[in-house]
Design a protein around this nucleic acid. Sequence first.
DNA 1: AAAACGCATGGTA
DNA 2: GTACCATGCGTTT
Length: 893
Amino acid sequence: MSSSSSASKVCYNSECKEVKSEFPRKGWRLRTGEYCELCDRCYFAYEEGRFCETFHMNAAGWRCCESCGKRVHCGCIVSSHAFTLLDPGGIECMTCARKNYVMTSNPAWPTSMFFHSPLSERLKDLSTKNWTQLAGSGPVPWRQAPSLFNSSIPSSELHTRVPHEVDGSTGINKLNASERIFVSTLEKKKVEEFSERLMKVNLSIGTQQSLENGIGNPGINHEEKSSSCLNISQQSASLKEEPSTPQFVPYGSPSETNPQLGFTGTNLRPIAPLAKNYNGNGVESSGDNQIRNARPRVDARGRNQLLPRYWPRFTDQELQHISGDKNSVITPLFEKMLSASDAGRIGRLVLPKKCAEAYFPPISQPEGLPLKVQDSKGKEWIFQFRFWPNNNSRMYVLEGVTPCIQSMQLLAGDIVTFSRLEPEGKLVMGFRKASTSLQSDQENEANKTTNGVSAHAEVELADPSSWSNVDKSGYIAKEALEDKSLIPKKRKNSNLGSKSKRLRIENEDVIELKVTWEEAQGLLRPPANHVPTVVVIEGFEFEEYEDAPILGKPTIYATGRAGEKIQWVQCEDCFKWRKLPINALLPSKWTCSENSWDPERSLCSAAQELTTEQLQDLLPRCNTVASKKLKAAKQDPDNIEVLEGLDTLANLAILGEGESLPSSAQATTKHPRHRPGCSCIVCIQPPSGKGPKHKQTCTCNVCLTVKRRFRTLMMRREKKQSDKEAETTRRKQHKGQLLVVDKPEDDTLSYCNAGSSSPNQKIEILELSDDDLNMTKSSTSPFKGQIDLNIQPEREDELSPGSDSGGMMKLLHDATARYLRQQRLSSSGGSEKSSGNGSQRAASEAGGGEPLSNGVNLESSNVVNLESSNHDSSNDCPATLSIKPSASMTATG
DNA sequence: AAAACGCATGGTA
DNA sequence: GTACCATGCGTTT
């Protein structure tokens, strides 16, 4: 074996020496970072886990599985994926390990499942020539016997032992060093690093071919030694990798790791063990984030860790289901939320590059290979796994997935999961409907923000097909559900940004989101346990909450028999409609049990007061949500995406104003590029961070909303800053004068005069009298984690009212104006402008969308602007508005 | 003309 | 600044 696999013309397998083919297959990863190149025969042996069995039958280091007695070679890095180390000593083949895992379902188990890579690392070091990465398998897995869960070996012991177990190669010290550092600090960085690497791990079960021998592990000459080494490696590995993300909390040394990391039980999630590919190169301790067990990479560059969004999130049930009665072991590989393209008719499923390179066969030609995939029902599909050259990189796709996607009734936003079934080595494709996925995504988060549709019921009802419960989601997550029901979790964007938020909106949901602006407001509920701060703006009181409002349960307002005002609400569980007082404010999820107004109907078993006909009569009066729900209640009460804060408002408002919604076929998880004239919520919103800037004269709902809230927030800040200043501010506001206030310290809100950025960081606000528009300009100001609307000069044409096809803008304006008017009238009857649409009018006044000479044009400043980066436009005053997503407010009459 | 193909583009992380 | 990836869109079938 040569140190440079690619340099040689022959197979890397020293016992082969066959001339490599023109396109040599890549095997395990070498110290150099490259992958050894094998001849076809050896490659397949490697790929199928028969490598050692085939070539190293006579090597030392064979042990028997403590459970099934099967012989497994423990001293070979190539076989490291095939067994797991037991605390009491001995090893267990992965098949047994997996079984035990599934059976015991010990929450801590999953963590231990990740204690693989280190071993590989050790092995690598042990091996003087190479460290391997078995295709489709990972580093030596290690786990503790459930009963010995807390008896992990002290890291100190590990450290002291390590030197004895590894040879004196140079890499050892480095490894030990890094290990110590890791164990002792567990700094966040490491945590993150680990968590990422974790995902790369591919649990390789399997390869039950027991007899294996390290192909290039001269350093390990006898069983005992290798065994001990493995143990050590594993331990250290576990320790090293423990710092994982909450979702994959590695369970290493409970006594140290968990406490240090602060992981809690609720964070633990049973996740299928993943055999992790690990870069055993001790030299690059920080760069060992390569996928080890990953398949041979076409390109070593693909060794980076998988993004969390692709982490497989399997529950025991799912795994069990997949493995079924076949006694098979399932190895979760990755999952992906279907994009519109993926779910579209094109039939191409874009595969995350790293996933593709890690878990799918290496392909050197764009044409790729046909890949046989089995769905969770056992049906086999053949997709073309290929790639497109793309920016010096590759874009991997699975072609021909349409039939499969359709078979599973998947839509954009749903999640497909890829696993490997061992020992068959079959690729298994499962799925989770968006609703279920959402839950999964929120596993460590609250689901309190559900928008009114039962998250639990979704799983049951999401799939109208004959799929069993399990099948419905691919393999379902009963446990996940339980978790959610028991543990209040707060939903966060987590890995999913706003983009992903949109992704979660299924068609049904989108349709259900078709509520008017007023309705959207009506659905807003202050977040629990939050006391609003009441501020007065222009004589109107506003309740502000630090946290985003949540969407309340949609109800149907009606008049009771006695003429009293009532509202009808549908139970999340039984879908019966219950009558409630008109003033009842409901949480997003409401069930009969919460019907404190009518104890007799506080149970789902109680009959519905309304007849179907009566309800039907009511429906036209209610929004689409109710109507749709009535019709689909028994079918698919999928949850509506929980949109929070401004996003929610904006989306609802937009949708409510007649924005054409994507059809099922058009369901998109990621909006296409911004298109001229498109006024959808995507196009009118800037991407986070930089994004398109809204036109100065933009009066879209988003801008209006932002402006309004901005003003409110500004006012509050102002008020807090000083009474005097507040006095001045209010006075000036009412006079429609320019306000000057200090820039918020936290930069939550800031804007400037782009044309003449004020160094003093003063904020100027121009109020258009009583109008809704706030004329603002801002100087540069960094924004962090804020929603911002930017003027995007280059998109002015696109966003200009004139290009707004079909008066979408007008509708939005009207809706907003109506709402605001309503608010004002009900609150103080303030001097409202007679104009039906102040926003629009203001926009007109702003010069009909014409660029301002210097951004000082007050009328134009209604456009809030954000970042300093907007100064690219000469004349435009890229005023920027930024609002903390978390900050929200509800207006009260 | 429609569908499929595959590279290009650009938003996002 | 780079890489990824969703999807636009021109080209080919």
